[in-house]
Structure formats: structure tokens, C-alpha cells
């Protein structure tokens, strides 16, 4: 009987534990970077709005289209065409002029943020989902950082447990 015998250590040790067959872990899998293009409502840009109207390369406050979008990302990224080449709006422009897809935006970021990019490739910076054993889904930089104004956002925390709120100060329950 459980409660009567539970405390009896003699009996506990007398009975051998049943071995459980360990299982092999899932096949080590690959890492997939979650694609961005399915999430961009206006993409491909060249087939939508920009089929009718070419981008204007003058730096200005945006009022008519992309209203309210500001560019606040270091001194060298002065205007949209630094990353969105006017002749190839469906892809991104790297510093040297090469083009990458929006799904590979990290390559753009990595040019100036090499250390973060390296940590991201190792799975240290950024976030994973899916399976730790693989396939692992890795979010691209732009899932967390707005490429246009990458300043760190604030969060509203979910509520604390009632007793935590009541005790207010101390960390310990």
C-alpha cells in the first residue's frame, strides 16, 4: 500500500527499479530561416504600386505613400535606395551592389553588424522555434528589428501573480 509503505526506505531499496528503454533522439536536422516574403502584404513591390509609380529618390518626409515611415538607422543609410534599389524593388541591395531576396535580409544586416550576424548563425542571437533537434526554425533579423528604425521597443508586461503583486518588493515567495 502506497501510503503505508512509501516511507519505508528498506522496501524502497529492496525493490529493483524497472529499466526503461531509452529512445534514440530524432535525426539531427537542419536549420531553416523563416521566409519573410509571405508576410509582406505588398510584395512583390514592382507588380503592385510600383508598376504604376516609380520610387522618388529625394529624401523627404513621406506623406502620400508609406506615410509616417521614418528612416532612422545610422548615418550612412540615408534613403530608401540604399537597400531598395529603384530598378529592382523586389530584392534588397547589399552595400557592394549585389542583390538578395527579402528572405535573405540577414545578409544585408550582417554587412554592418557582423558580430551579431555570426552569433545569429550560431543560434545564440535571435530566436528559434520548431525542434531543438531539428528542423529548427530561425527567425530573420527583421522579425525583431524594424530595418527602418531599429531602436529597441518597449513591452507591456503580462500581469504578475497576485501574491507577487501583494508582496511587491521581495523576490522570494
Amino acid at each position: 500500500m502506497r501510503l503505508a509503505l512509501g516511507p519505508s526506505l528498506a522496501l524502497l531499496t529492496a525493490c529493483a527499479d524497472r529499466p526503461r528503454a531509452p529512445r534514440d533522439p530524432p535525426e539531427a536536422g537542419l536549420v531553416q530561416v523563416v521566409p519573410r516574403t509571405p508576410l509582406l502584404s505588398a510584395w512583390p513591390c514592382s507588380e503592385g504600386c510600383h508598376a504604376r509609380r516609380a520610387p522618388d529618390p529625394t529624401r523627404r518626409p513621406l506623406r502620400e505613400f508609406h506615410a509616417g515611415r521614418t528612416l532612422d538607422h545610422g548615418p550612412t543609410l540615408r534613403w530608401c535606395d540604399a537597400c531598395h534599389p529603384s530598378d529592382d524593388l523586389d530584392r534588397l541591395r547589399l552595400l557592394g551592389g549585389d542583390r538578395v531576396t527579402f528572405d535573405n535580409a540577414d545578409q544585408l544586416c550582417g554587412q554592418c553588424h557582423a558580430e551579431r550576424h555570426r552569433d545569429w548563425s550560431r543560434g545564440i542571437h535571435g530566436a528559434q522555434s520548431g525542434s531543438w533537434a531539428g528542423p529548427t526554425l530561425r527567425r530573420n533579423c527583421v522579425a525583431c528589428h524594424d530595418p527602418h528604425a531599429p531602436q529597441r521597443p518597449m513591452f507591456n508586461p503580462l500581469p504578475p501573480a497576485d501574491h507577487d503583486r501583494a508582496y511587491g518588493g521581495g523576490a522570494h515567495p
Binding site: P157, P160, A161, A171
Partner: peptide, 9 residues
């Protein structure tokens, strides 16, 4: 502290 309220950080 544990009972802090927002915004955070």
C-alpha cells in the same frame, strides 16, 4: 522585485 508593472525594460 517580482511585482513590477510596465512598461519594460
Amino acid at each position: 522585485r517580482v511585482g513590477y508593472q510596465g512598461p519594460v525594460p
